[in-house]
Design a binder for these strands. Structure first.
Length: 299
DNA sequence: TTAGGCCTGCAC
DNA sequence: GTGCAGGCCTAA
């Protein structure tokens, strides 16, 4: 399932194939996979792609006349480059033939992804990013999450929503929360500055390591050259429900949050009910937060 | 805020 | 045959 590292790896491997190339032909094998701009799509012929950007899990291919093709890989999307002569694999919905005599093919068996064509880059960003998609997770800083304590939400649900941080999905959220020793159902307004800073650092560390290894291939994911990612063997919690925690040996627990399987260590990812910066106050005034303070100290 | 829908392949 | 995998959108 492509999350930020996989989409970024696709971007990096797509650039040498697509940027600077002229589109000579477009074959639309599945029109309903083109979510907007279907009628305008043939007009891309003769134009060149000048840049490929990414925000979260969204890819933006800008052309020389500013029309912008937006791609989302959903759960099973794949973009591949191949010689014109080769056969097209099943579930291929869109094929660009380039002046380099190569093709860029968009394939997505489950069709949770899609392709959108916008008249300008600005319109593309307005449609997919400006409303409701937060800062790209690779650029995440402490300040981006400072307002969290005023929110009542829970960690995993909030991170999945893309609203504050864009690009994380089920795999990397579970990995980052384990690394940060934070409970997936942690209520945000109980986090201390230090815990938020730790979370920001752990998200960055997990993403950086996965990027170095070309992302995670569980089954389907491939980059544009059809190479697998090698981060799967580094996974600490994802897919390991019931197995021992690699840090403390306790049994990892699998629960459903927002309809997604969530794996965490109940021993080293305790829920915090009093922010650690306020523990002293809680101890000094047990009547106010007594029970919560004891829970916090036990974790 | 949560549940359902979209969709196919695969494990059982 | 059934259930599960889940990113994102929409509706209740």
């Amino acid at each position: 399932m492509p999350e930020l590292p996989e989409v970024e790896e696709v971007r990096r491997t797509l650039i040498p194939v697509l940027v600077g190339a002229r589109i000579m032909d477009i074959k639309i094998l599945r029109p309903d996979y083109i979510r907007s701009g279907l009628d305008a799509l043939p007009r891309l012929c003769g134009h060149k792609v000048v840049a490929i950007d990414r925000h979260g899990k969204w890819l933006f291919c800008r052309l020389d006349h500013d029309q912008t093709l937006v791609l989302h890989l959903g759960m099973s999307g794949r973009i591949s480059a191949a010689p014109v002569a080769g056969g097209v694999e099943k579930h291929t919905h869109l094929v660009f033939t380039l002046d380099s005599q190569r093709q860029v093919r968009v394939c997505d068996p489950r069709r949770f992804g899609g392709v959108w064509l916008h008249e300008t880059m600005e319109q593309a960003r307005a449609a997919h990013i400006h409303k409701g998609v937060g800062v790209d997770a690779l650029l995440l800083e402490f300040a981006d999450l400072q307002h969290w304590r005023r929110a009542g939400g829970r960690l995993k649900t909030t991170l999945l929503s893309q609203r504050d941080v864009a690009g994380l999905g089920n795999i990397y959220i579970d990995e980052a929360l384990w690394l940060a020793r934070l409970h997936p159902q942690q209520i945000l307004n109980r986090l201390s500055d230090r815990q938020i800073q730790t979370l920001v650092e752990c998200i960055g560390a997990v993403l950086a390591q996965s990027l170095r290894l070309g992302g995670t291939t569980l089954r389907d994911y491939r980059n544009v050259a059809l190479q697998e990612g090698r981060f799967a063997k580094k996974l600490q919690v994802y897919g390991r429900g019931g197995l021992p925690c690699k840090r403390c040996g306790a049994g990892l627990k699998a629960i459903a949050i927002s309809g997604r399987t969530t794996v965490f260590c109940p021993a080293c990812q305790k829920r915090i009910t009093v922010a650690d910066g306020r523990d002293k106050d809680a101890a000094a005034n047990p009547r106010r937060t007594g029970k919560r303070a004891r829970n916090a100290n036990s974790g």
